[in-house]
Design a protein around this nucleic acid. Structure first.
Length: 277
DNA sequence: AAGATCAGCAACCGCCTGACC
DNA sequence: TGGTCAGGCGGTTGCTGATCT
C-alpha cells in the first residue's frame, strides 16, 4: 500500500468531496497573490481544510485561468486519438508509456483529467464503434458501460484509422506558446535558429497515421526535426508509431513548430483559436 | 409521471518518482 | 545509501442532470 501523505492524514481533519465556491475563491485568490510554492502548505496558508493534493488537483483541473471549458473540437479529438494511439498502444520501447499528462501537454487549455474522462466516456466507445463497423461485428462494449469494472486494456486495441479525415501538419514559428511551454521543452532543443521552414506544410493522409514512418518521413521533408527530436525519431523508427512517438519524446515538437490545421487552409488553426494567458 | 439507465464530470485513491537529508 | 517527503500520475468511483422506457 502506498504511504499516506502527511497532509492527508486523519490527524488534520481535512474536508473531502465537492469544493464550495468559497473554497474555490480562497484557493484561487491565494495562488493569484502568492503563487504556488509548496502545495502541502497552501491549505493552511489559504485557510482551507483540504489536503495539499486536493488543492493541487482542484487548481490543475478546474481553477487554472488558462483552462478552457466546453466541448472538445474535432481537431482536439483527432489529436487525442492520435496521441493516445502513439502513447497508449503496444510499443517495443519500455519508455513508451501511456501518459494522459503528455497528451494534455499538447492540448492547451485542457487538463489531463479532462482528457482522460473524455477518452473513457467518448472516444474509446467511438473507436470501438468504428472498429466494429469495419469488421461487421457487434459492438457491445463492456468497457464503456456506465460503471466499468476492470475494462479491457486499451493498449491492446488497434484502431484501423485514427483520423476521420486528412489533416495538415504545418511548421510555424509565429504562434504564441501556451503557458508551460518552456518547461515542457526538451533540454537542449533550440527553436531560435531558422532551420524550420515556417509556414511550409505537409498534408498527411488519415490512413498514413497508422504507419508512423510514413508520417515521419513526410514531416521531415518540410521541417527537419530539432536535434533531440531527430534522435528520438531515429530511435522510434522501430516503433509502429515513430512520428507520433517522437512528438511525445520531445514536447516542443508540437508546441514549438507544428500545429494541426483541420481545414487544410491555414485559416483556422488549432493554435489560433486559443488564447493563452 | 416515475423509475431506470446513460453520460459527463469532479474528485479521491494508491502508487511511483525524484529531491533532499 | 537508504529513508522521508512532496509532487505528480493513472485508474477508479461517486454524484448529478439528461434521456429513455
Amino acid at each position: 500500500m502506498g504511504r499516506v501523505h502527511p497532509c492527508c492524514s486523519e490527524e488534520k481533519k481535512v474536508r473531502k468531496g465537492l469544493w464550495s465556491p468559497e473554497e474555490d475563491e480562497r484557493l484561487a485568490s491565494h495562488i493569484a497573490r502568492f503563487g504556488v510554492s509548496c502545495w502541502s502548505s497552501i491549505p493552511e496558508l489559504a485557510g482551507l481544510q483540504r489536503c495539499g493534493k486536493s488543492c493541487r488537483l482542484r487548481w490543475m483541473n478546474y481553477l487554472r485561468p488558462d483552462l478552457k471549458r466546453g466541448r472538445f473540437s474535432q481537431q482536439e479529438e483527432d489529436l487525442i486519438i492520435a496521441l493516445h494511439k502513439a502513447l497508449g498502444n503496444r510499443c517495443s520501447f519500455d519508455h513508451c508509456v501511456h501518459s494522459w499528462s503528455q497528451i494534455a501537454a499538447r492540448l492547451p487549455g485542457r487538463s489531463d483529467n479532462e482528457i482522460k474522462n473524455f477518452w473513457n466516456a467518448r472516444l474509446r466507445k467511438k473507436l470501438r464503434q468504428r472498429e466494429a463497423s469495419s469488421t461487421g461485428g457487434t459492438n457491445k462494449d463492456p468497457a464503456t458501460s456506465h460503471r466499468r469494472r476492470g475494462g479491457e486494456d486499451d493498449r491492446t486495441t488497434q484502431p484501423t484509422a485514427v483520423f476521420s479525415r486528412p489533416f495538415q501538419l504545418q511548421a510555424r514559428k509565429d504562434q504564441p506558446r501556451p503557458a508551460g511551454y518552456v518547461a515542457g521543452r526538451a533540454a537542449g532543443t533550440s527553436y531560435d535558429n531558422d532551420s524550420h521552414a515556417a509556414g511550409s506544410s505537409v498534408f498527411v493522409d488519415a490512413a498514413a497515421v497508422t504507419s508512423g514512418d510514413a508520417v515521419l518521413a513526410a514531416a521531415e521533408s518540410v521541417a527537419p526535426s530539432p536535434t533531440s527530436t531527430a534522435s528520438a525519431c531515429t530511435e522510434a523508427r522501430g516503433c509502429d508509431d515513430g512520428f507520433l512517438k517522437a512528438m511525445v519524446d520531445d514536447a516542443s515538437f508540437l508546441f514549438g513548430d507544428f500545429y494541426l490545421d483541420g481545414n487544410n487552409d491555414g485559416s483556422n488553426s488549432f493554435w489560433e483559436r486559443h488564447v493563452f494567458s
